[in-house]
């Protein structure tokens, strides 16, 4: 589904990603762990198409298409979803309007008709109930004045509603207490499916106790320096990133 080959990228001419290879197949959940500054967030932004990140070498294919050629909205249309580390507050745009605009934009991209407004709202309220989200949430402006936990829950709501092929979760656990973490993890687990791939980017192993990945990779110095099963995450938790940071320096 997603193939990243020999990716090199810079931010302000400074190399951040230095030869990264990664392949995700449908149904797989991959975790990328790494120390601060390893390039984790850079990777998520490159995949979602944010300005300011320049790919200098390598390629990224999504279902065989050159992903790097596409605008952010086209990538979303193709089925890529980034759950933001810091969801953005948008005062004045109600959450429900935002969700409906997003769903219809993606449908339009795929050549599907607009969704029936009533059916959409009904589905939305059901999804909220499933995720334990108060319906009032839908009337409030997008993320405006939301607590850290509410913002992350809102990302999960969007994930559920947009039902992408590939979900990238960027530090979704940051700023969450244990209860919120559990709710968010439940939301993610409910979305696991044989057709959907997930890429979980995290600094801590904590989240991976709740969302158990199929594969764990260590990102250090802009490259994947180790890969393994869930046990690798536990090893990192116990021993830290020291070994890999050293390897990168050498």
């Amino acid at each position: 589904m997603l193939e990243i080959k020999n990716l090199h990228a810079t931010v302000d001419d400074k190399p951040i990603i230095k030869g990264l290879d990664l392949t995700l197949k449908p149904g797989e959940v991959h975790a990328i762990m790494g120390p601060n500054g390893a390039g984790k967030s850079t990777l998520s932004y490159i995949l979602s198409g944010r300005d300011g990140y320049e790919v200098t070498e390598g390629e990224v294919l999504f279902e065989g298409k050159d992903l790097l050629e596409l605008e952010p909205e086209e990538r979303a249309g193709e089925g890529i979803f980034l759950a933001f580390q810091y969801p953005v507050e948008i005062p004045g745009v109600p959450n429900s309007t935002f969700l409906k605009e997003a769903v219809n934009a993606v449908r339009k991209y795929k050549g599907e008709p607009e969704i029936d407004a009533l059916a959409f709202m009904k589905g939305l309220r059901e999804t909220c109930a499933k995720l334990g989200i108060d319906k009032e949430f839908l009337k409030r402006s997008v993320n405006t004045g939301f607590s850290g936990g509410e913002k992350k829950r809102n990302e999960m709501l969007q994930l559920s509603v947009l039902a992408p092929k590939l979900a990238i979760l960027d530090e979704t656990d940051s700023g969450l207490d244990i209860d919120a973490l559990r709710t968010v993890a439940d939301g993610v687990n409910a979305m696991r499916s044989p057709d959907r791939a997930m890429l979980i980017i995290t600094h801590y192993q904590r989240l991976l106790d709740y969302i158990v990945p199929d594969h764990v990779h260590v990102l250090a110095g802009g490259r994947i320096v180790a890969s393994g099963g869930p046990e690798l995450a536990h090893k990192l938790e116990a021993e830290g990133y020291g070994e890999f940071a050293a390897k990168d320096a050498a």
Binding site: E73, V88, A102
Partner: peptide
Amino acid sequence: ANALFYLRARGIPEGRARALLVEA
């Protein structure tokens, strides 16, 4: 710019995203 990217990352085309932000 962050809000604009956030909307686009959810599939909303740039022109529409700008319009939503101005209306807001």
